[in-house]
C-alpha cells in the first residue's frame, strides 16, 4: 500500500528539483520550512521527530534540500516530510506538508474491531510496521 498523507502523495514521488520548487514557494511566502521523520505512519501520529528546528532564518531552498538529504541519509527507510509553518495571526499553523521520503515496503494497517453494545464497534488502527520496536520497523 501507499500511505497517502501529505499534499502530494497521489503524484509520483517528487524529484529533488520538484522539492526545491515547493521549498521556494514556502520561502517566498515567508514561511519557515521544517524537516520531520518517523517510522510510525499512524494517521493520527501528529508529532514526527524533528530534524532540527523549523528553519526560520533560512531563505535559500538549497539549504532545505541539504537538510532533506542529510535526513534521508540518516533514515533512508523512514517517512520524511517537509512542513511549512506560517506565523501570520489567524493562521499560526502549517500551510503545506508533503512527504519526500518513504520506506521501500509499506505493509499498511490492520483495522482492529471491538464489538460494543448494540451493533457499535470500537475501531483501532495498527500499523503493521509499528508492531516492531521504534528504529527497527522498516528494512
Amino acid at each position: 500500500m501507499r500511505v497517502t498523507q501529505g499534499t502530494f502523495s497521489f503524484l509520483p514521488d517528487l524529484t529533488d528539483e520538484q522539492i526545491s520548487k515547493q521549498v521556494k514557494y514556502i520561502l517566498d511566502n515567508g514561511w519557515a520550512a521544517a524537516v520531520e521523520f518517523t517510522d510510525d505512519p499512524h494517521p493520527r501520529n501528529t508529532y514526527w521527530e524533528m530534524w532540527g528546528h523549523p528553519m526560520f532564518d533560512l531563505r535559500d531552498p538549497a539549504g532545505v534540500l541539504l537538510e532533506v538529504n542529510a535526513c534521508r541519509k540518516a533514515y533512508p527507510q523512514h517517512y520524511i516530510r517537509v512542513n511549512a509553518f506560517d506565523a501570520t495571526n489567524g493562521i499560526e499553523s502549517l500551510k503545506l506538508s508533503f512527504i519526500v521520503n518513504r520506506p521501500d515496503e509499506e505493509p499498511g494497517f490492520n483495522l482492529h474491531r471491538t464489538e460494543g453494545p448494540g451493533r457499535s464497534i470500537i475501531y483501532t488502527t495498527h500499523s503493521y510496521a509499528a508492531q516492531k520496536p521504534a528504529g527497527s520497523r522498516y528494512g
Binding site: M1, V3, P43, G108, F109, N110, L111, I121
Partner: peptide
C-alpha cells in the same frame, strides 16, 4: 451511521489518512 463508520475506518486503514 454504523455502516458509514465501518467505511470510514476501513478507508483510513487502507490509506493511512484521516
Amino acid at each position: 451511521y454504523l455502516y458509514c463508520m465501518e467505511a470510514v475506518n476501513r478507508a483510513q486503514a487502507m490509506t493511512g489518512e484521516v
